[in-house]
C-alpha cells in the first residue's frame, strides 16, 4: 500500500518539517540581509544621517534625501491613526458592552470583508469617492484650493483600511476581560459607563496600545492605495491638503527606472530596508505590550 515503511515515512515527514521550519524561521533574517546587502552601496557612500534627513531628492545627480518621503509617510500614518483610533475604541466598546451577541454576528463578517478588500480596490474607491469629496467639499469648506490628491485623502483611505485590523484586536481584548471585574465594579454602585471608563479601560490599556501599534505599522507600509491618492509630489507638505509622497509609493513608482540610474536601485532597496526596520520595530515593541496584557489578564 505504501512505498516506504512506517519508520522511513516518519523520517521523510520529519525532514520535510524541519526544512520548512528552518526556511520560515530564517525568513526575516534573509529579508533583512538581502535588502541590507543591496542597499550597502548607498549606506557605504553616504552618511546615514544625510540620507534620512536631507531634503534633496535628485537621483540623476546622485542626491538621495529620504526626508520628504519619511515625513510624508508619518503624516499619512498619523492622520489615519487619528481618525481610526477613536472610531475603533468606541465601536469595540459598543459591540462588546452594549449590544447583544447577535450584533457581533453581523459585525464580524463586515469586518472580515473590510479586511479582505484588496488595497488597489481601496485606492480605486479613494479616487472615485474620497478625492472628489476633498476637492469639491472639504477643501472649499476650509477655503483651500486642492486637487484632492493629497495627504488627507491618503490618510482617510488608509484609516478605513486599518480599521478592521485594529477593531479585531480591540474586540478580542474587551471580550477577554474577566466578567468578575465588571460585576465587582457594578455591585459597588458604579454605572455602566463608569465601569467602562475606570475599570475596563484601565485593564485594557496595554492591549489598546498594542492594537494601535499594529495598526500604525500596517499603515506605514501600505502601498497601493496610498500611491493612488497621495499625489506623488516630492515636497515637504505644509498642510494636509498638499500632495505628498510616501516611502512605499517611492519604491512602487520607480522600479521601472531603477536600473538605469546609478545607485538608484540601492536607494530604493534602502527605502524598503527602512520600511522593514520600522515594521519589525513596532511589532517587537507591541508584542511586549500584548504579553504584558496577557499576563495582567491571567
Amino acid at each position: 500500500m505504501y512505498l516506504l515503511n512506517r519508520i522511513q515515512r516518519h523520517r521523510v515527514n520529519y525532514t520535510w518539517m524541519i526544512v520548512s521550519l528552518v526556511l520560515v524561521a530564517s525568513l526575516p533574517f534573509l529579508l533583512f540581509l538581502g535588502l541590507y546587502l543591496k542597499s550597502f552601496l548607498l549606506i557605504h557612500d553616504y552618511h546615514l544621517g544625510d540620507l534620512l534627513f536631507s531634503k534633496e531628492w535628485k537621483p540623476g545627480s546622485g542626491k538621495f534625501g529620504f526626508y520628504p518621503f519619511i515625513v510624508g509617510s508619518i503624516w499619512v500614518t498619523l492622520i489615519a491613526m487619528l481618525i481610526s483610533g477613536p472610531i475603533c475604541i468606541l465601536t469595540a466598546i459598543y459591540v462588546t458592552q452594549y449590544t447583544k451577541k447577535r450584533f457581533l454576528r453581523i459585525m464580524h463578517p463586515a469586518i472580515d470583508i473590510l479586511a479582505g478588500i484588496p488595497s488597489v480596490v481601496y485606492g480605486l474607491w479613494g479616487i472615485l469617492v474620497i478625492v472628489p469629496f476633498i476637492s469639491d467639499f472639504v477643501g472649499p469648506l476650509f477655503g483651500v484650493k486642492t486637487l484632492g490628491y493629497s495627504i488627507l485623502a491618503a490618510g482617510l483611505v488608509l484609516s478605513i483600511m486599518i480599521i478592521p485590523f485594529i477593531l479585531n484586536i480591540l474586540i478580542e481584548i474587551f471580550r477577554t476581560i474577566p466578567i468578575e471585574l465588571k460585576e465587582a465594579s457594578l455591585s459597588l454602585g458604579a454605572t455602566q459607563w463608569e465601569t467602562i471608563k475606570h475599570v475596563l479601560f484601565k485593564k485594557a490599556l496595554p492591549g489598546i496600545i498594542a492594537a494601535f501599534g499594529f495598526g500604525l505599522a500596517r499603515a506605514f507600509g501600505e502601498t497601493m492605495a496610498v500611491l493612488m491618492v497621495v499625489g506623488n509630489v516630492v515636497n515637504l507638505p505644509k498642510s494636509v491638503f498638499d500632495p505628498g509622497y510616501t516611502l512605499p509609493a517611492l519604491i512602487a513608482n520607480n522600479y521601472g527606472e531603477m536600473l538605469s540610474i546609478p545607485k538608484y536601485d540601492s536607494a530604493l532597496m534602502f527605502a524598503a530596508l527602512i520600511l522593514l526596520a520600522v515594521s519589525l520595530f513596532f511589532n517587537l515593541v507591541m508584542h511586549f505590550f500584548i504579553d504584558r496584557y496577557n499576563k495582567l489578564a491571567a
Binding site: 505599522a217 506605514f220 507600509g221 524598503a272 520600511l275 522593514l276 515594521s279 511589532n283
Partner: peptide, 8 residues
C-alpha cells in the same frame, strides 16, 4: 513576518 509590508 506577518507584519512586514508586502512592498518589502
Amino acid at each position: 513576518v506577518w507584519g512586514i509590508p508586502s512592498i518589502v
